[in-house]
Design a protein around this nucleic acid. Structure first.
Length: 130
RNA sequence: GAAGCUGGUCAGGCAAUCGCUGUGUUGUUCGCAAUACAGAGGAAAGUCCGGGCUCCGCAGAGCAGAGCGCCAGGUAACGCCUGGAAGGUGAAAGCCUAUGGAAAGUGCAGCAGAAAAUAUACCGCCUACGUACGACUUGUCGUGCCGGUAAGGUUGAAAUGGUGUGGUAAGAGCACACCGCGCAGCAGGUAACUGCUUGUGGCAUGGUAAACCCCGCUCGGAGCAAGACCAAAUAGGGGGACAAUGGAGUGGCUCGCUCUGUCCUCGGGUAGGUCGCUUGAGGUGUGUGGUGACACGCAUCCCAGAUGAAUGGUUGUCCAUGACAGAACCCGGCUUAUCGACCAGCUUCCUCU
């Protein structure tokens, strides 16, 4: 009787995406840009990571209108980034990550965006372990 | 059945699961948790018009500038919509039109053409009238001059009403008939405008106003990063009390002035936060008035409100294999993008009965 609620509680923490796991203020973003410890990128996206004091990983999105002109495209990238982060946040604990967008992101479909971002998050996690 | 026209509706569905935002309820260790419900569009887009709302000298007059422009109506308002008129276009249903003024003024018109705006004459046509010369049959003919003419030809986007008859030297609204046009009258219409077997005038006022301009109407400016409130740290300001006849500076000294300590208090205000923020020119149904846009009445419903910015991911399944595309203060329009599907009405043609 007591085991079931505990199981669900743990699972929730693993995959949730509340305000705790986001960069909220300009100061938070500034911190990452100033004191980044590692980075990863390809022609479409660029990730910057910095250490934070919490146990949680946090995500910030900086998708420029210059690269992706249509709101629909920007929304798609943001959603995919959040989704990828949500599934991989356990191995990124203690990091603040900002996702930036490059010109190569134009014309990618959902699957391509997801795959690219997952690879980049992997790279960051790997780099952090060493 | 085929081709087409007009108006309207929809914009993948269902299930499971992992998330996000808001609201209600319950619990709470006041962090939050559980649960129920709701959660992008017809264009949310372009920001091209018009309003509401907010602040700014409460915006009156004149000038400038901008916009609009057949008539009537609708509307909070409009450059929008509805109905009508005129013109154009199509075989038709229909569709399109910046559609006021060119007898207030100014300007413009390449090439071609004789001539492009007040009349003119290149090729033509004519030689009646006047005149010169010649011929001879002595009143005719020929040639020239002075001229007449705009029927015909040539140019152009556009050439000073058209057709016919008379007329004439040849011609000409020169005259007449019909058509067209102007003005007046009558009739219909709220009006734009239309009609007339009415009268009258030989007959205009070439085009261009998305050229200046004239006439009529409209317009104060800036925008939710509007604006209102709360307000840390740091620095500084106003007022009061206390210590105390204190200290420092200015100065030879006194007064004076300036600076300085502690506490209280006031206001401004940055980071940040809250409100503005979704109940509205609102939706749905229905009745009445109106050709219609729409208006009014009644009943009923509450239907996104984020703020590093939610409305999504994965899996299964069905089909027609899913286009254009994402709210950011809110409405009314316009314009542009769009795979398709469906409904209603209408037009033409074909087949059958």
């Amino acid at each position: 009787m007591l085991i079931a609620p505990l199981f669900f509680a743990r699972k929730r923490v693993e995959f949730s995406f509340s305000t705790d796991s986001r960069l909220l203020t300009a100061a938070d973003f500034g911190e990452v840009f100033q004191n980044s410890c590692c980075k990863a990128g390809d022609n479409a996206f660029f990730l910057l990571a910095g250490k934070n004091k919490n146990e949680q990983a946090r995500l910030g999105l900086a998708i420029a209108k210059k690269q992706l002109r249509r709101a629909v495209d920007r929304n798609r990238v943001k959603r995919m980034a959040r989704e990828a982060f949500r599934h991989q946040q356990r191995m990124l604990e203690g990091l603040d990550i900002v996702v930036l967008c490059r010109s190569g992101a134009v014309g990618l479909n959902k699957v391509q965006i997801r795959r690219k971002l997952e690879q980049l998050f992997d790279k960051i996690a790997h780099h952090n372990d060493r």
